[in-house]
Nucleic acid binder design. Structure first.
Lengths: 328, 328
DNA sequence: AGCTATTGTGTAAACGGTTACACAAAATTA
DNA sequence: TAATTTTGTGTAACCGTTTACACAATAGCT
């Protein structure tokens, strides 16, 4: 790889001059500018980001921590941030935390050691003290905290909405599948749904599940043994809903006639399920993009009107819920 | 952030000594070692990777280029490489190429500018000359080329296998959905399947589709208009197969009685489809992990027995294909 | 022409590590 | 005890940029 010194020699100028024309900073005579660019071209010179980063004490790298890219909800987000950042020449150092504090800390440390210019993270709640005394901007994604800017979605409305959908469409023996309580957004949607259901004085059962397929299957296997009269299920996410759907089909229960089912997230494959899954949509890509936007504003020290962006969720009506009776 | 100089001052030694005890290189008296470690502890010193990387001319970063993390096949791979590399302290700079040459080149350039120690890439075929004269190790993933080490799966056997499955189970009017021909592995599986089908003197139709849901739906919409007598479909991947499945169901065709369907990849949600999708499995996670393993060997200049690892595929029998008649 | 701005360029000191080298002190050997 | 080897430590150069500063040349004013 050619260095700035090679270019300087080739162009017959000093390294400072090369640097200036590369960055368009300071003065440079048109002739020397041309000479430098010719040398750059000839040697195919690309400035070494590492050296630049060392001097400037900040790189063009952004750290991204997501719980698990294997869950289809997160790749959407990741692309949202990547696509947005890319326009500004930022690159991503990426790590999966598996919601584990240790991994998170490890990644934060290496991000810092690599002079990242900022970080975007879906951090487990208790851990975000790890981000507290950083001197670089951090934005939380799909999670919130007082002290840090955040982009997330309206879990409370989402949870309520899921409950309302089943209620309005006539379910009265509802199983609410609660995801891991440590995961704040998941817990919030659960809480909101439970509240709505409780208010409705309907028969409610709560079951626990992880957010994975295996967890969902394990949960749902017991569901009908425990609560055979169930006529509505609110799942903690689409994956678990898909597991439930499968169990429902296996048992020959008619959906949505005998039982209604609603998921959460609206990941890509929900539309491919049979019947297609009704769900609460979180705008994952958009969330990622907005987090990136916020981060860039922070990096550029722009004034930020709102540091906490709560994006709206919506009910995506498909075929695991009944049509709501029209008003006459 | 504390620097090595701060630590040196705190411990009352020179920076060289601090460096030596941090790296366990050269001599260091036990007492001074302790003093240094105490200072490190006290100041919470973490060596700056950027400075280290500048001097050594290689970082602890590995570049990863994948076509599109939004396709569930790739996150599996990505985790395979991340999980493996993580043990050795390497981190990932990540980029989606969308199979676009420009994006690929852009990422390669920035990877290089950041002194990555190696790269793993699913590169579009024609573009991999971009990797040719690099002085760092590169391993291809899910793609192959003569000159570069590669980890991929046995597309030829996979394609053949898919065809054999339908053939052996009695389909005789088969539509073969071909993915984008520029994507080598996708083309290869197509070619192998076509060959097998042709040999069988069965009625074959070829249709084109992208690898996405939208593409699959568009293709499959026309399928039954064009070829109403179809009794077997080989899809270019699971996503397209899922689209086909949906169309089949919509049309009230019985599966697998009237028509058989087989996908490719075995991504996570295939098991959730109704009926669960029979498919050809590629060991995506394992492929990622092995690519990482190969890369690390390259980095450490270990001797490598085989630079081209072709991993086996397998038929995952689920419910969109009939049971094969048992031998008596 | 003489003076002041403006423009153009180079030198050298950072940035925060690693390491070659020099040298001193301690341990080992004869 | 003297010579030699081993151990322990510091100084300074280097990695490839950026930029403060100095200074020269040119341009723009009276």
């Amino acid at each position: 790889m050619a260095t700035i010194r090679d270019v300087a020699k080739e162009a017959g100028v000093s390294v400072a001059t090369v640097s200036r024309v590369m960055n368009g900073s300071g003065y440079a005579h048109e002739d020397t500018r041309k000479a430098v660019m010719a040398a750059v071209e000839k040697l195919n010179y690309k400035p070494n980001e590492v050296a630049r980063s060392l001097y400037k004490r900040k790189s063009k790298l952004v750290g991204l921590i997501l719980p698990d890219i294997t869950n289809p909800f997160f790749p959407e987000m990741a692309r949202g941030v990547e696509d947005y950042l890319q326009q500004f020449g930022y690159r991503l150092i990426f790590g999966n935390s598996d919601e584990k504090r240790d991994k998170e800390i490890e990644y934060i440390d290496t991000f810092l050691q690599n002079n990242v210019v900022g970080m975007i993270a879906s951090t487990s709640e208790e851990a975000n003290e790890n981000f507290d005394n950083l001197e670089i901007p951090v934005v939380l994604l799909d999670r919130t905290a007082e002290k840090l800017p955040a982009v997330y979605s309206d879990q409370k409305t989402g949870g309520k909405l899921a409950a309302r959908v089943l209620l309005d469409r006539g379910s009265s023996n509802i199983v609410l599948i609660r995801g891991p309580v440590e995961i704040k957004p998941v817990f919030e949607r659960y809480k909101a749904a439970l509240e709505e259901l409780t208010l409705a004085k309907v028969n409610v059962q709560v079951m626990d599940s992880s957010l994975t397929l295996q967890g969902g299957q394990a949960c749902v296997e017991k569901l009908f043994e425990l609560y055979p009269e169930t006529d509505g299920i609110i799942a903690c996410n689409d994956i678990v809903a898909a597991a439930a759907l499968q169990e429902i089909l296996k048992r020959g229960i008619r959906i949505p006639e005998d039982i209604q089912l609603i998921g959460y997230d609206d990941i890509a494959f929900t539309t491919l399920l049979h019947p297609p899954l009704s769900t609460i949509r979180q705008p994952a890509y958009e969330m990622g993009a907005q987090a990136a936007e916020l981060l860039i504003k922070k990096i550029n020290q722009e004034k930020i009107e709102e540091t906490h962006k709560k994006l709206p969720v919506s009910f995506v009506e498909r075929e695991t819920t009944r049509r709501k009776a029209e008003k006459p």
